[in-house]
Design a protein around this nucleic acid. Structure first.
Length: 671
DNA sequence: TCAATCCGTATC
DNA sequence: ATACGGATTGAC
């Protein structure tokens, strides 16, 4: 497929110019370059294909963005060197999406394309086109051909009827209208079934869907629900965990139009589903939705961008509600789908705070974290009634945050409202944002003037519980081994957040322990994150009428605890968003962090044209002796800030090979 | 006067 | 980044 370098090459007759995105990591080269298409590659070099081109003397990979009749370039055009494959891996929708995402995140197109299109796997590409058969192997005969018969999928809204605006949303999707919803599922809700129904409604309208879920377990649950609702062979699973071959096979199945539905982890957020009709994300507050590779796009933002650009319906569901989801509701971009309060009360377990007490908080860091007596009694009652008990304990390894020694209110900087933390072995607390020492600190809540390091977590809960309930099976689900489900039998299940197995029939009791570890984390999102984890665990409990009990070992006066008691994630999210508006935190404001060696950061900021009213916070020390600065702007100036950051990064790299700086937009670890 | 080297700049 | 070109400097 390659053309010999020679003087005999002729450009193609029609549309001889290819506009190429070259895969070089330099911000100032993030624009198309024009190349001549050799006549012999005329057929293959189509928009969306991968090519190799000679660029600044080097052979580099590139993407064909377009074929045009003429170039605006003054100089002489080079021929492109080689067509890697005639597979048009980049669709027009994804190309436009990637450009928008790159702009939003002050990144470059090539970086986003690397995230959007998995590495080529030649053997997979040669295979006869058929979707990846899932675990319950589908015989090839059951696989629909490319032009599948009309999608005779019944739209079943019965499961959504518990929510007053649920059926209307499903109808809108079934009619191909771009409805957008923030959904608060009822406790105990079979949410994979509801997602599958929404997806089926989309397919029924002849359109495709993309659903992104936090982890493999959730993907498996939706996969199973889709098999039930859609039947086999209508969807594919796309996760990074599949490995290169299977991942590329799933990707191609979507790109070639063999399937209309892709579900997966954030690896699926750019899935090239044709004629997209619905994007869905589950539990968008989970931080695994944030892509760790540049330019660090968040799955929620990518999916919402797809919805916005394509006139596509959107569904954001989760037991908790993120500040960002709340913002969508408050701006009217999305409608909320919630059940009536009476229905919520009927379905929710009974939630009781246990913990009044400074006492508990004080010895939580000791070697033996105690189980409060209420929690103990509640667990025993459930076990005696033959029901499993879930115990949620946080994982180790959070930051040494600082809070008021008297009332334990997390301490915030008096200047910029950033969180305070104790740099290792230093006597005075310091702001993690602006770096100012917290001299003369006075607690806004109780006016206390003393600060203390927050507690550290307790680890031996499982063993202790084993001793507390002799003769009872104790199972653990966590990082090393994650359980999917447990039977409806008496057992104590100790799980870390996100690893809670589903219990058949629901848990009789859910205990939420060591909550201080979550609440006092030096993290802007600590309260939101705590509530998210609690609601996700508590949602696995039975309704109160069936004996379902939740004990949260925390002060009942705290806002996230209140939200859990009332089962009102919307109330908490509204409150949280109002606070962030007040303090100027995302998503109410837009922030960018610039991280790197001190002089490189200073250099970039010197080159940065800050939008009017932009604030500069920092520097604060970052990992590896690097430094971090934050820039804060109003949301209306978010696009301009991203643009200027890109320009500044570009002028810097264009000039000289300075040390690299990392630019992140609304980073989650924005402490 | 020529060549080795240093910046600065463009990269189709 | 890397490759090229024009200016600069140094030795014959």
């Amino acid at each position: 497929m390659s053309t010999r370098a020679g003087h005999d090459r002729q450009p193609a007759d029609r549309l001889p110019v290819a506009r190429i995105c070259v895969d070089v990591p330099l911000p100032h080269l993030d624009r198309p370059f024009d190349y001549l298409v050799p006549a012999e590659l005329d057929d293959g070099v189509q928009p969306g294909t991968r090519v190799r081109v000679r660029f600044a003397g080097q052979l580099v990979a590139g993407w064909v963005l377009d074929r045009v009749a003429a170039s605006g370039h003054d100089g002489k055009l080079a021929f492109l060197d080689k067509l890697v494959s005639p597979e048009r891996v980049l669709s027009a929708e994804i190309a436009a999406l990637a450009r928008t995402v790159a702009d939003r995140y002050a990144g470059h197109l090539a970086d986003v394309l690397r995230l959007a299109v998995p590495p080529r796997h030649a053997r997979v590409e040669q295979e006869h086109s058929e979707p990846e058969p899932g675990p319950a192997a589908v015989p090839p005969a059951a696989v629909p051909p490319a032009a599948a018969p009309p999608d005779a999928v019944p739209t079943d809204a019965a499961g959504w009827a518990a929510y007053p605006s649920g059926p209307a949303f499903l109808r809108a999707v079934a009619d191909g209208r771009p409805a957008r919803a923030v959904w608060a599922p009822l406790p105990g809700e079979d949410w994979p079934a509801r997602y599958a129904e929404a997806i089926a409604a989309t397919v029924g309208a002849g359109r495709g869907a993309v659903a992104v879920l936090p982890d493999g377990r959730d993907v498996d649950r939706l996969d199973a629900a889709l098999r039930r609702v859609l039947g086999a062979g209508r969807h594919v699973v796309l996760t990074a965990a599949l490995g290169p071959a299977r991942r590329y096979r799933a990707f191609l199945a979507a790109r070639r139009g063999l399937v209309k539905v892709v579900v997966g982890t954030r690896a699926a957020m750019f899935a090239p589903v044709a004629d997209l009709g619905l994007v869905a994300i589950w539990d968008d507050g989970d931080d695994v939705h944030a892509e760790p590779r540049a330019p660090y796009p968040h799955a929620r933002e990518v999916l919402l961008t797809r919805a916005q650009l394509g006139g596509v319906a959107a569904l954001l569901g989760g037991f908790a509600r993120s500040g960002e989801a709340q913002q969508l509701v408050e701006t009217g971009w999305a409608r909320e789908i919630i059940a009536a309060r009476a229905t919520v009360r009927r379905r929710a377990p009974r939630v009781t705070p246990a913990g009044d007490d400074a006492q508990l908080a004080r010895d939580a860091g000791a070697a033996t974290a105690r189980l409060p007596s209420l929690a103990f009694a509640t667990a025993r009652t459930a076990l005696q009634a033959g029901m499993p008990v879930l115990v949620q304990v946080p994982r180790r390894g959070y930051l040494p945050a600082v809070s008021c020694a008297d009332c334990r209110t997390p301490a915030r900087c008096q200047h910029c409202a950033g969180p305070l933390a104790l740099p290792a072995a230093t006597a005075t607390a310091q702001c993690r944002w602006c770096g100012r020492p917290a001299a003369g600190y006075a607690c806004p809540h109780c006016h206390g003037r003393r600060l203390r390091a927050a507690v550290t977590g307790a680890r031996r809960t499982a063993e202790e519980l084993g001793r507390a309930f002799p003769g009872t099976t104790v199972r653990t689900s966590g990082r090393d081994e994650v359980l999917t489900s447990v039977p409806a039998e008496p057992a104590v299940v100790v799980a870390t957040p996100g690893a809670e197995p589903v219990a058949v029939g629901g848990y009789g009791a859910v205990l939420l322990l060591d909550t201080w570890a979550l609440l006092t984390r030096a993290d802007l999102r600590a309260a939101e994150e705590a509530l998210r984890r609690w609601l996700s665990a508590a949602a696995l409990g039975r309704p109160a009428a069936d004996g379902g009990q939740v004990v949260v070992v925390a002060d009942g006066g705290l806002a996230p605890v209140q939200a859990l008691l009332r089962w009102d994630p919307g109330w908490f999210a509204a409150r949280e968003l109002a606070d962030r508006r007040e303090l100027g935190f995302p998503p109410a404001a837009r922030m960018a962090s610039v991280t790197g060696p001190a002089e490189a950061v200073a250099e970039l900021l010197a080159a940065l044209r800050m939008p009017d009213g932009a604030e500069l916070l920092g520097p604060v020390p970052a990992a590896d002796g690097q430094e971090r600065m934050l820039v804060r702007v109003r949301r209306s100036q978010a696009a301009e800030l991203a643009r200027q950051l890109r320009v500044a990064a570009g002028t810097r790299t264009a000039r000289r090979a300075g040390q690299p700086v990392r630019i992140q937009i609304d980073p989650l670890d924005l402490l």
